[in-house]
Amino acid sequence: MKIKLISLLIGVLLNALAFTSFAENLRNTVEENTKAAHTTTNTNPITNSSIIDIAGYKVPVVKGGLYDRYRSNPPLHVIQSEAPDVDLSWFKQLKKTKVDIGFESYSPNFYYKNSKVTAVFTADIDRLRELMPSEVLEQVQPLQIWPGRGLVAFTAYAYHYCDNDSYNEIALSIITNEPGSSNLGPLTLIGQSMSKDFWGYVLKLPVDTELARVRGIVGYNLPKWLTRINLSENDQTVTYEIYDRKTGKVDVTFEAQKLEDLSTDAALVTNSFTNIDAKGQLTTGYAVSRQLSYGTNSDNDSVNLKLNGGELSQYIKSLKLGDVMKYEYVPEFQSALYAPELLTQK
């Protein structure tokens, strides 16, 4: 492929990836007198816990917390009284239903106050295909944006207040086509970006509470494990540290810039995934996010992913990550996570 054609393709792709238009100069000069950095460590140790049973697992939860009291179905008036600064207008339009997902729960699961940062990298497409089960590959495939290169999304979430109390989560996902639809590489990606309806296959999903781990594995068929995740921030950056579950040392550090000129026009974005349940059946699940404050660019300098040689680091290195195709900073969003369904029901 000629250089000019490659450049044109990348230009079209990057323009389509942006949720909103931004000026070229997104990185303003740092103020001379910055405020002192403030740090929040979210390892979620539960000092005052209740032990509950979820599908045979004995799970510690915050005693008197939302999950302890309401099992994913708290009345919105309770949320309003406990978090009066949270806008609940969107959640009032959504109806919860009782579901059996390996244990009794309610769908969708509500996330009232959250933040996240995402970097989309190019990656070795042969390695991505190798990591997906053959049954899944029959339905969806990695999007190839140019020969030999697919895309993976690295997203760090902080769920500050939700039906499952609070926790941090790191998602590493392959970007794919939708089941039953054509995979036209960049054109498919452009279509997903324009419709704000993205599809993927989740590779790794560490979390820092046992409640999030058990619910994710049993209820949503997701590859979760429990480890320490620290979140810190200052005036310029937000940083997540993911600890190795074997050594107890920091394994992955993800530092991301806080962008300016953020959009505050509420936007709904759907993220769906395809996977396999405990019975070997193909399933799909999805979450709808209401983004309340967000910004994006395609600057490699906006993120710094440091890999220290642990289990997750070695896995990420095997993907042969390339440039950042898109960076998204979302300091405020809400979300509704729906129970998975068999693929044949979609």
Rank of each mutant, 00 (worst) to 15 (best):
P206G: 00
G180C: 10
D165P: 06
V214I: 10
K196P: 07
D197A: 08
N177V: 07
P179A: 01
P179Q: 10
D165Y: 06
S182C: 08
G191S: 15
L211P: 03
G191T: 14
K204E: 15
T209P: 02
L187I: 15
L211T: 07
A212T: 04
P179H: 04
G191N: 12
G216P: 04
G180V: 11
L189M: 15
Y167S: 02
T188W: 02
S173C: 12
G219R: 07
L184H: 13
R215G: 05
N168D: 14
L189Y: 02
M194T: 12
I174G: 00
I174A: 07
E169V: 06
G180A: 10
V214G: 04
M194Y: 12
S195L: 15
S195Y: 14
E178L: 09
G216C: 10
K204F: 07
S193G: 13
G185W: 01
L189N: 00
W199D: 00
L203N: 08
E169L: 04
S173F: 09
N164T: 12
Y220F: 15
L203Y: 06
V214F: 06
M194P: 03
T209C: 10
R213D: 04
M194G: 09
I170L: 15
I174D: 01
A171C: 10
L205N: 05
K204D: 03
F198C: 11
T209L: 04
D208P: 01
A212E: 00
W199S: 03
V202R: 05
M194K: 15
V214E: 00
